[in-house]
């Protein structure tokens, strides 16, 4: 019974959100539920407010108007509670930084380490609780990077970098995964692996929310597609959202609003 109730609760509730930078509106009256335990792909052109929506979901930016809740709580509280894991775009990370693949994934555990014994928290991270290392090993294995654990991150290829970032997000053991362009600039082998890993996460009950430009993988893997361009253009099954008419509406929605959003009941 409780399982059913949990499934019907949305993971993310966005209520009439309005956000702007320097008076320039980026999100206008965005009002949508993202279902829990499902895989949602957010699709929209550059500058459509996808990254802004992510920042609001993570609670690192506040919407000027409207409310957002993640699993029934304020995003910033949920972020501190470790409910969400965030996988950044590749450009956001300093790849020249002198750090190994293994230690990079371990940074995903830094939030959990707040619960460790005091002495563990003030010694260098390599002497952290062994259970963190166990999670790191598992995450590296999941993305097939265990053989690269000692490499400096600067020596990796584009697809490998993405896989390390994904491993770091997995290591957080969060209930909601937020992924910003997980497929940008990766080879097909890495792409297939990343999608397989995310599919496994979804099957084990996690909520996956990804921003992407890749229609093919959205069509193939996502349960729901959210079409976004400053406003919600549509939300529903991929086969009904990723059609020419809806995509044309999405492209135009940055300037005009001549259609009501098409939101399918879940």
């Amino acid at each position: 019974m409780s399982e059913v109730v949990h499934q019907s609760l949305p993971a993310v509730e966005v209520r009439h959100v309005y956000a702007a930078y320097d008076g320039q509106a980026v999100l206008e009256d965005v009002h949508i539920d993202l279902p829990a335990g499902e895989w949602t792909a957010i699709i929209g052109p550059n500058g459509a407010g996808k990254s802004t929506l992510f920042r609001i979901l993570l609670g690192v930016m506040k919407a000027q108007r409207g409310q957002v809740q993640v699993l029934g709580q304020e995003p910033s509280a949920q972020r501190r509670a470790g409910v969400m894991a965030y996988m950044a775009q590749q450009e956001a990370v300093e790849w020249d930084f002198p750090i190994s693949v293994r230690d990079t994934v371990l940074t995903g555990r830094y939030g959990h380490m707040r619960g460790d014994a005091f002495w563990r928290r003030i010694v260098p991270p390599r002497w952290c609780d062994p259970r963190h290392w166990a999670v790191v090993r598992q995450a590296l294995k999941a993305v097939d990077m265990q053989d690269y654990a000692d490499r400096p991150i600067g020596a990796l290829s584009g697809g490998q970098k993405k896989r390390v970032l994904l491993a770091r997000a997995l290591a957080q053991e969060a209930r909601v995964l937020l992924l910003d362009e997980p497929l940008a600039g990766v080879d097909t082998a890495s792409e297939r692996l990343i999608m397989k890993v995310l599919d496994g996460e979804r099957r084990s009950g996690r909520t996956v929310i990804m921003v992407t430009h890749d229609m093919d993988s959205a069509r193939r893997y996502a349960d729901k597609v959210l079409l976004l361009n400053r406003q919600v253009v549509g939300m529903g099954a991929p086969e009904r959202m990723l059609v020419d008419e809806m995509l044309a509406r999405t492209a135009a929605a940055g300037w005009v609003r001549d259609h009501e959003p098409l939101v399918e009941a879940s």
Partner: peptide
């Protein structure tokens, strides 16, 4: 270190 390496991640981890 985390703030120097990846401030956004530091923020996301609370």
């Amino acid at each position: 270190v985390l703030y120097t390496f990846d401030p956004m991640q530091a923020q996301a981890l609370g």
